[in-house]
Amino acid sequence: MDILIQHLNKSYGPQKAVDDISFEVKTGEILGFLGPNGAGKTTTMKMITGYLPMDLGDVLIGGQSVKTGALKKQIGYLPENNPLYLDMPVMDYLAFCAAIQGVPQSAIANRVLDMVQVCGLGAEKHKRIRELSKGYRQRVGLAQAMIHDPAVLILDEPTTGLDPNQIVEIRELIRKLGQEKTVILSTHILPEVEATCDRILIINKGKIVADGAPATLRKQAQGRQVLQIRLEDAGVEDARQALANLPGVSAVEISNPDELRFDVQSHPEHLSNREIFELCVQRHWILAEMIPLETKLEDVFRDLTVN
């Protein structure tokens, strides 16, 4: 089911938490919701689930407004901090969630077992939630969000508290689910969005500041190519001069004179790999390394959210 968010607004007193946000998420898309603390991620997600009323605007899921409350069965939600009934055993809790989400009585036992298996809760299924470690509680949180096989998954920081192995597992799980469902997940772990999401939405102070695939965003922020090269059999100053004189190159920096390392920046929209290679052939220099330096998502994020 597609999610369509139209001019969403929410204020807490004089403070605008969400300021006229509009975007669309298509079925089968995993949207990563990024932003510094207090940017309005959680507030937006709460409004999508229908928990918080919106001041202005609307959220349409499959063309229907969440305000009616009729869509709740289509949404699976994992809130921030993962609140659970700690006194309940895992199986009972999942069965309760299934029942209340309208899973037919005859199907509940199977759904619970499915979720226990999918989320890797097999060894812990008879324990009370209180007795579980944070990572396992997080899995229970994911299991309860998915138990009724919803078309839309809203996950607020799904991998907090998980160890690296679990993070990889959960990412794979989300990717798998994302093929047929619509997933919105928030996080501030940047490698996570790159690993799981098809599209990134960065919000800051309640406004959308960037929207696009991780690679596109990186390119946008980058603008120009930077190559790190290492030469052999060349003089430092000689090489610097020759490189700087190439038509495509805008600046050359010597990063390590002893090892003959240079950072070569090209003019915008221009790639200089070929020119550098040909120069080296001409001068009989050995081109020992040529590494394109990528702008990291961290830099993009910082550029957009620090002002």
């Binding site: 689930t49 928990y51 409350g69 709740k72 949404i75 809130p79 609140p83 700690l86 989400q101 309208g102």
Partner: peptide, 14 residues
């Protein structure tokens, strides 16, 4: 206090 009310009210209940 524990926040479970949020989880409960976002399920298919009024």
């Amino acid at each position: 206090k524990t926040g479970t009310i949020e989880l409960l009210l976002t399920k298919a209940v009024t």
